[in-house]
Write a protein that binds this DNA or RNA. Sequence first.
DNA 1: GGTCTCCATGTGATTTAATAACATGCATGG
DNA 2: CCATGCATGTTATTAAATCACATGGAGACC
Lengths: 172, 172
Amino acid sequence: MTSPSDPNPAAPGKPLGFAVHDHLRCVEGAMAAAEARCASEGLQFTPVRRKALEILLQEHRALGAYEVLDRLREAGFGSQPPVAYRALDFLVSNGFAHKIERLNAFIACAHPGTSHSPAFMICRMCDSVAEAQAVPARGALGEAARDAGFQIERAVVEAEGICPACAGKARA
Amino acid sequence: MTSPSDPNPAAPGKPLGFAVHDHLRCVEGAMAAAEARCASEGLQFTPVRRKALEILLQEHRALGAYEVLDRLREAGFGSQPPVAYRALDFLVSNGFAHKIERLNAFIACAHPGTSHSPAFMICRMCDSVAEAQAVPARGALGEAARDAGFQIERAVVEAEGICPACAGKARA
DNA sequence: GGTCTCCATGTGATTTAATAACATGCATGG
DNA sequence: CCATGCATGTTATTAAATCACATGGAGACC
């Protein structure tokens, strides 16, 4: 699973998370990308923020703020809620992570760099989460918004269901 | 605003909430519909549940569970959180109301009867909410789900932005 | 060099959201 | 008549999020 010869089956823009992939590289790559972007945009990628992103990147699953807080504390950072919430706010507002409203939880962005309006698929059995792209102006919602004269600025799109792995297990 | 000659500009299936309409009738109609459906399906439309729905119907806006609880208490019902949460659970599971995840709040269903997967438009200035229809299988999300082998069971679709009324005010 | 300001971090306390666990009481059906 | 199921109610607790305030470092500016 961490063999360096593993191909990465997730092409850019395609949902990752359900697909097998080289996770070590996946984490390292994302960290390097974040590092680079912070440097180029003058964002302060401080130790807590870095650690928080690392924590989220470990799994393709959404973590609650208190779960992140626990791990930050273990790593020697502050132990009060604002510590986690502030780091998460930084990550979310700069596109390094997203909040899954349905779960009141946070997940690392799977398509960093890409300016995007993300959509999520949440498996209700194993809680894994995959991120896809969705343009809100398209589809039924965009149509309704145009009809109503509503200006969409941001959209939360979160599908709940069964991921391929769990569907397989259920059939077995 | 409550004049009996007001036309109702919201055709079935079209988003309501931003449109001017006869709100008294809107509430009465929804209550009657709920009444009828509970009778026909053997659901217990008890006083708390009825009152909770009435409370939500008063406004085209999402109310927090504790806000609903306050009004239930004022109406003489129990004063503890489970009172509100149980009534709201009943309304949500039977399609009389929806939960807006983004706001951790609840709103009366605008298209009762219709079996639907709702989508919402939330004004970030005045907090009003309009409900539209969105079929999750269509659009970019459905495509991504098919690609990934993910089976969508339910979808949260919540657009945040500016409603026509507030856009008008901003221009003035 | 000194100082001012901004911003990040840390802590204590509080508010808001949601659920667990348990008791009561009323229907309905056997 | 009693057993069962279901709705309601209460106490208590857990989880999520924010407020308010103190500290301290890095740069900008004189």
